[in-house]
């Protein structure tokens, strides 16, 4: 299990923002924090480091997410 702390920069446009939030809420791997203006703190839990990497790419590709910042990653449970 890999735990990553991420910050997503959201598009300020409200419609796209709602769409993005809905989509993120539906993703079981993600736990969403309290948004600060256009920044959304997120914790991602993936089965492996590689899966985490893939998720990073996936998030970056979502329309309405302008940027993904990686704050910290915990590999300690990786085998």
């Amino acid at each position: 299990m890999t735990v990553s702390a991420l910050v997503l920069t959201l598009d300020p446009e409200p419609v796209s923002r709602t769409r993005v939030l809905e989509r993120l809420r539906g993703d079981a791997r993600l736990c969403l924090g309290d948004r600060v203006l256009d920044r959304l703190p997120v914790v991602a839990m993936t089965t492996s480091c590689a899966a985490g990497d893939a998720l990073f790419g996936e998030l970056g590709a979502i329309e309405g997410i302008l940027k993904v910042d990686v704050v910290a990653v915990d590999f300690s449970e990786d085998v």
């Binding site: 990553s4 948004r35 600060v36 704050v71």
Partner: peptide, 11 residues
């Protein structure tokens, strides 16, 4: 812990 770090960074 991860959420705290992410929130701090978001701020």
């Amino acid at each position: 812990t991860a959420m705290a770090a992410a929130t701090a960074a978001a701020y």
